Simulated assay, not measured.
Amino acid sequence: MRRTRNNWVLPVSVLLGLLLGLLPLPETLQPLRPYWLALVVAYWVMEGDDRLGLGFAFGVGLVADLAFGSLLGEQALRLTILAFILQRFRTQMRFFPVPQQALAIGGLLLNDRVVNAALHLALGVPQLPWTYWLAPLIGMLLWPPLFVLMDSLRLNRRKGS
């Protein structure tokens, strides 16, 4: 079995992460929306080559700030912090089984909520309701299927010589 790399998966996954973040949801489901872009960036920082690190996370975050209409630099800072922590523990995380990776990703998403709350507090922006703290749990549960899907798309398995 021969493996070939699909170069289209990175831009398409980032675009889908942005679109899923922009997708309108009913008011009751809005707090449960996972941070799709953080999941996509986490995958690429862990599994991509060494070029995909802090600069990649910062660039994607700036695009997200413009797309979501949030404070310029907020998402960029949040994704850069996530990428920094992931880069620090990348070698260990790559050898974790996927369920253990999901727990670590859940912790990173929870850390992202803390950073978001601290930013809102420092800037005097109203805090999000307590139900927004459930989204990291949803993201943690989505990590295993998302990881398997993106890994199979990134590493196309072909039969042949």
Score class of each variant (00 low, 15 high):
Met93Thr: 06
Trp143Cys: 08
Ser70Phe: 09
Arg90Pro: 01
Gly69His: 13
Thr28Asn: 03
Glu47Asp: 05
Val98Glu: 13
Lys159Glu: 07
Ser161Asp: 00
Arg2Glu: 01
Gln92Trp: 06
Gly106Leu: 08
Val148Gln: 11
Gln101Leu: 14
Val63Gln: 05
Ala118Val: 07
Ala42Lys: 06
Lys159Thr: 00
Asn116Leu: 14
Asp65Cys: 15
Arg113Val: 04
Phe56Ile: 14
Val12Cys: 06
Val115Gln: 03
Phe56Asp: 08
Arg154Thr: 14
Asp151Gln: 07
Val125Thr: 12
Gly139Pro: 15
Leu66Gly: 09
Gly55Gln: 11
Thr80Ile: 07
Ile105Pro: 04
Phe147Trp: 13
Ile138Asn: 01
Phe84Trp: 12
Leu146Lys: 11
Phe95Ala: 13
Trp130Glu: 07
Ala83Cys: 12
Pro97Gln: 02
Pro31Met: 04
Gln92Asp: 14
Thr28Leu: 10
Met150Glu: 12
Gly17Glu: 07
Leu66Asn: 03
Thr80Pro: 12
Trp8Tyr: 13
Thr91Glu: 08
Gln30Cys: 02
Val41Asp: 15
Leu16Glu: 03
Asp49Glu: 13
Asp151Ser: 12
Leu20Arg: 02
Leu149Asp: 11
Ala64Lys: 07
Asn156His: 15
Leu66Ser: 10
Pro11Asp: 00
Asn116Ser: 08
Asn6Lys: 03
Phe95His: 15
Gly21Gln: 15
Ser161Lys: 00
Arg78His: 06
Leu86Arg: 01
Arg113Ser: 03
Arg94Pro: 00
Val63Thr: 15
Leu37Ser: 04
